[in-house]
Design a protein around this nucleic acid. Sequence first.
DNA 1: CGGCTTTGACCCGCGC
DNA 2: GCGCGGGTCAAAGCCG
Length: 321
Amino acid sequence: MSNETKDLNNYHYTSSYNHYNTINSQNMSLPYVSGPCTYNANMISSQIGSDLHSSSQGAFGFCFEPSPSSSEFFNPSIDQENSFYNAYNYNTSLKSHEVVGGGGAIAENETRVSASPSSGEADHHHGENSGKSLLKREADDGGDKQRSQKVIKTKKNQEKKIREPRVSFMTKTEVDHLEDGYRWRKYGQKAVKNSPYPRSYYRCTTQKCNVKKRVERSYQDPTVVITTYESQHDHPIPTTRRTAMFSGPAASDYKSSSLSPGSNFINTPRSFSHDDLFRVPYSSMNVNPNYQQQQNHEFQHGSDYELLKEMFPSVFFKQEP
DNA sequence: CGGCTTTGACCCGCGC
DNA sequence: GCGCGGGTCAAAGCCG
């Protein structure tokens, strides 16, 4: 059983899957990178705004290691519904290309700057200080007084309706909760309309870290798990990680890339720390032949290919049997 | 016992 | 105003 993580390009619930189907129907060769892969927030940040975040660890540290078997990492994408990004930028279309990169259908479609899915998602404020919780606490104090305050709070919330940036992945896996190196606490589960599969809500357990993620299984393809990360980790991956993984590219690495935005190489981590390399569970490495062939073709005569060979362990380029 | 999951209730925004 | 759907809370229970 393989686990595939696919770009959601502005994944918006069901629509994302349509996109997925579109890609497949067009028989596009998707960029694959197998094995556990970290989608480092710095990568995102670098695409969105140079100074967006400069945390050492990176905002989103996605290191999928879903199962004992291999995973195929597709394009991560950003749901830039957040004005936070807008404030920093920026020509989203172009930058998104860099993020999603995948050339092919994804990159063409992309444009990833999508509008917010709408309601319900407005109250993603930091920590427990969401408007909702505030209101609830106040309501617990009882009285009409709270009601009036409620209105005030609501207005305030409306004023600072800042949505966190989101990145979504579609992962073909039997495992619902993909291991990504961080520790998560499940704080809710909801049935999804038109889907027999529930959506789970997780929050980073690190104190003061307000990163959340939603995990749901596609109703159209039960083998696909949709993971949506929201906000950015402001801390490194816990050292007590339960699984091995490697990091993705740092922002600088990404920015300095000589690859064109349309290159299918966007998903391939381009730099690793030694530490990270040592953590790579080689047994799960599994490079998609098509992808490799494509990459070889693209970089065979270029410095990039050599660079990649240097940066990646040989196992990355191991030909699949 | 601490951390995590489960789950029903609640709140909010939006569309009609 | 009402209903719906998404998101969150928090008590209870589970587990190592």
